[in-house]
């Protein structure tokens, strides 16, 4: 260290230090959601996923109006046309425009994904919340049921339900997915509630005389929101996959309605005939959508993890 020449006698005057200043926390306090959003924004891949999701939703909503066809409009002389100014993504074997069918299919896929996530949330939160909050015997019984359901191969059950239900369509698929999908969410919610019930701040709120309702809405639910949101985000791609899977094996939406799964199925059948666009576009769409939701969900999980909060 350098010799400091400028040490003078005057400098040895006592100063009063305001100690309260030393108590001030160095960084400004920001709330949990702001902090999560800040961290999410730093995650380029997750933001890319979010951008992609927004793009896909917008295109599913408005894409079909960009071209002068409808999803079931057939021009028989335009069968299996490649990419052209008239048909941006080509046409299928009935001369239907694939661009418009893609975005119509996108509506189906996104709707199913969204509804599956929502129904999981509703059933899962009610079931899991009740189980966790009540505890004791009721909890035991409810969780045994969940254990058994959890051991069922869910896609197999969905297939069975689709076989049994006579009418095929979006509603049926959503119902089948809802009937099987909530189990994971219920477990998650129950786990969160049990954990939070034991936490000291809930005890603190209790001793301060907070009512059950207030406890539930002000403390328990906001604090278990993080994992629930992440779970929902990741439900969307798996529901979209389930729909594509069902459509692929012939149990999904029925013609002339298009879904990405049915389009891939048709595309695979003509894959070796050179009509590559019929497989390419729906395949890319499914993958892009699942990719977008997966990376966004991962990013959300990292951003919402309170353990990672710095």
């Amino acid at each position: 260290m350098n010799r400091m020449p400028e040490i003078t006698k005057e400098m040895f005057r006592r100063i009063e230090v305001d100690k309260s200043e030393a108590e001030v926390i160095a960084r400004p306090s920001i709330n949990f959601w702001q902090d999560a959003w800040r961290r999410l924004k730093m995650n380029n891949l997750a933001m890319f996923g979010l951008g992609l999701i927004i793009f896909l939703v917008v295109m599913a909503l408005f894409g079909p109006y960009l071209v002068p066809y409808t999803y079931d409009f057939q021009v028989l002389e335009d069968q299996n046309q490649g990419i052209s100014a008239a048909h941006w993504f080509g046409t299928d074997d009935l001369g239907r425009d694939i661009f418009v069918r893609i975005w119509n299919g996108g509506r189906v896929s996104l709707l199913i994904g969204l509804m599956a996530a929502l129904s999981d949330l509703i059933i899962g939160v009610i079931y899991g919340g009740l189980s966790g909050y009540r505890g004791g015997k009721i909890d035991q019984l409810m969780m045994r049921i969940v254990d058994v359901l959890y051991a069922l191969p869910y896609l197999l059950v969905v297939i069975l339900m689709m076989v049994v239900m006579e009418t095929r369509g979006i509603i049926t698929i959503i119902m089948a997915l809802a009937a099987t999908g909530w189990v994971g969410m219920a477990r998650l919610v129950r786990g969160q509630i049990l954990q939070l019930k034991e936490m000291e701040f809930v005890l603190a709120a209790r001793t301060l005389g907070a009512s059950t309702k207030r406890l539930l809405f002000k403390h328990l639910i906001p604090n278990s929101m993080g994992p629930i949101i992440v779970n929902m985000t990741l439900t969307v791609p798996s529901a979209i996959f389930a729909e594509a899977f069902l459509s692929f094996i012939g149990l999904g939406v029925q013609a002339p309605l298009a879904s990405w799964g049915t389009m891939v199925n048709e595309g695979v059948a003509v894959m070796l005939s050179g009509y590559w666009w019929r497989l390419f576009f729906p395949a890319v769409m499914i993958s892009l959508t699942m990719f977008a939701f997966n990376v966004f969900g991962d990013g959300l999980r990292d951003a919402l993890d309170p353990k990672l909060r710095k």
Partner: peptide, 29 residues
């Protein structure tokens, strides 16, 4: 001892303890 230790991201130039010190002098800063 009142107060908290300084933030080491930006450590004080002088004696790190002066903000909590009962005997702090100008030179300490």
């Amino acid at each position: 001892i009142e107060g908290t230790p300084p933030d080491l991201l930006d450590p004080p130039k002088g004696c790190p303890f002066y903000p909590r010190c009962d005997y702090a002098m100008e030179v300490c800063v």
